[in-house]
Simulated assay, not measured.
Amino acid sequence: MKTFLKIIGGILLLIVVYALIAMVAFGKVYRYEKSMVMNAPGEKVWQQISSMKAFNQWNPWLKLDPAMKINYTGNSGEVGDKYCWDSRNDDAGAGCQEIKELIVNKKQKTEMIFIKPFEGQAISEIILTPEGNATKVTWTMETEQDAMMKIMRPFMDYQMGKSYEEGLNNLKNLVEK
């Protein structure tokens, strides 16, 4: 029994030490980035990122809840183009994403406001870079994190990696047709 308690105590101590190190070592700003080269011209990729409706054709998070409520506002393909989602599923949650900047055939920048399961705000960019006849698509997300969320950073990296990989593959399938 003493050995079991020592093991449990050791595990708890490791968790506490990791949490303290994470809260101190990780910066307040969390940034994630993933890139993929697509065998399509930038203009064709641009068509799939320049509006919220087009973005949602390959958005990996929409599949989390097929019954998700989505409401579009603003002028499609212009700054202010926005959609809000509301899901009963905590994996999808609720929030809004709005285009804040568009540079034709080069960049789309959005702001995301998360309402549930956690409140928060993030900035996302999709940057197109020509690579011969192909286009490199770089998708980023940046947000500030409080001390408790820093503890979750390795899990966030894992989840973001899966989601961004899926989204970029969805986009690649659309533009390489």
Rank of each mutant, 00 (worst) to 15 (best):
M1K: 10
M1R: 11
G10R: 03
V16L: 11
A22H: 01
M23Y: 03
M23G: 01
V29W: 04
Y30M: 08
Y30G: 00
R31L: 12
R31P: 07
Y32F: 15
E33C: 06
V37D: 01
V37I: 08
E43G: 07
E43M: 04
Q48N: 05
I49S: 00
S51P: 11
M52L: 03
N56C: 08
P66Y: 09
Y72T: 02
S76Y: 07
S76M: 07
D81I: 12
C84I: 02
S87C: 06
S87K: 00
A92K: 04
Q97T: 12
N105F: 08
K107C: 09
Q108M: 15
K109I: 15
E111M: 07
K116T: 06
A122K: 03
I123H: 11
E125N: 06
I127A: 02
T129R: 09
E131F: 01
E131P: 01
N133P: 12
K136S: 14
W139Y: 06
M141H: 00
M141W: 03
E142F: 07
T143A: 12
T143Y: 14
A147I: 15
M149A: 13
K150H: 05
M152N: 04
P154S: 03
E165N: 04
E166I: 11
N169K: 08
L171I: 11
K177D: 14
